[in-house]
Design a protein around this nucleic acid. Structure first.
Lengths: 177, 177
DNA sequence: CCATTTATGACAGCCATATTGACATAAATT
DNA sequence: AATTTATGTCAATATGGCTGTCATAAATGG
């Protein structure tokens, strides 16, 4: 595979001269599949899909999130978000309060019911991390954070980190009704 | 949040008494999104989707794979596989040779064209690992393998490992035409 | 104050990926 | 000869995306 392990000078080859990290590629594929698999099952009971989960998750994590911010996080289109958001609102999992500072905005909040479901889902996925970390050493958590962060596009990291560490939105104050 | 943070005895709670690992959950979400994102772009040029990628990947990794084995790896239904496999065969990326030992089987092989595309995709994703690992220490690779393995369902690990380490299929010899 | 931009919603239609269920065929196994 | 296995196929359906277009209300800039 593009090798040439003889002792020649080995032209660095534009793409990548090493054999690909197949093991890592596959482990990440299977790890992610199991990671989302558990939640999917629970969601079925509510007739929700992954899209609902993602929306509910970020709304719970950042109450008062605007639709635009959510679109930016999820990187989907308004139309794709519309249906799942409507279903979550109709089902009483999320509610939208119109902004006071900017009354065009719909600031999204989880209801108690939404918070409970979001927590349940987070605990499910968290349990997998908990078990994995327990199998590894005491520094495993910190290392996992570093590894996963390194896997994210550098330009994205700050934004992602802000969400993950639950910092205040960079937008100014946003009172709401 | 089912809390009761008053200073009562705090029964250990069946599910999980700690606050969930939100940071890890979100980092994995974003890391995976970026991980598959690059390949998705390349695949568009061929009018293929992720499903095609997965099939091509595993067929390239395990030439001679049977349809049943592939279904077992991907955990999708026969019908879901049918279209993408047909498109890959029609496009000349994969070819099926009927088994000699068991003539019902279709042993799947990548063509040269298929191998090239698979390699290109693997290099793309591999480059992300390469960059990430370079940012971390020299033991990062081994640690990543351990972490990702720990994230996989224990009962799945052996099977996954067999694929990832590219061991011979557990089924006996399978000559082919 | 008017024009423009912004935040959001909504409709129609399309595509990709997956599902289930039913049925068909050929080959292997008992 | 009967059954099981490996595979294929058809029809119908769900989900989660997409694009394009249009509408409305509110904010903002000249």
């Amino acid at each position: 595979m593009s090798t040439a392990h003889t002792a020649t000078k080995l032209p660095p080859a534009e793409a990548e001269r090493h054999s690909p990290h197949y093991e890592l590629i596959e482990l990440l594929f299977f790890a992610y599949r199991d990671f989302v698999g558990g939640a999917d099952q629970l969601l079925e009971a509510y007739r929700f899909g992954r899209a609902h989960h993602r929306v509910l998750h970020f709304v719970s994590r950042r109450p008062g999130l605007t639709v635009a911010e959510l679109l930016d996080i999820l990187r989907i289109t308004k139309q794709s978000l519309a249906r799942v958001l409507r279903e979550l609102v109709d089902g009483g999992f999320v509610e939208a309060r119109h902004g006071v500072v900017d009354r065009r905005q719909r600031l999204l909040h989880p209801t108690d019911k939404g918070r409970r479901l979001a927590l349940q889902l987070a605990q499910l996925q968290s349990a997998r991390f908990e078990r994995a970390l327990a199998e590894l050493g005491p520094e495993a958590r910190e290392r996992a954070v570093q590894f996963l962060t390194a896997m994210i596009e550098p330009e994205e990291r700050e934004r992602v980190g802000a969400i993950a560490r639950r910092e205040a939105p960079r937008r100014a104050l946003r009172a709401e009704a």
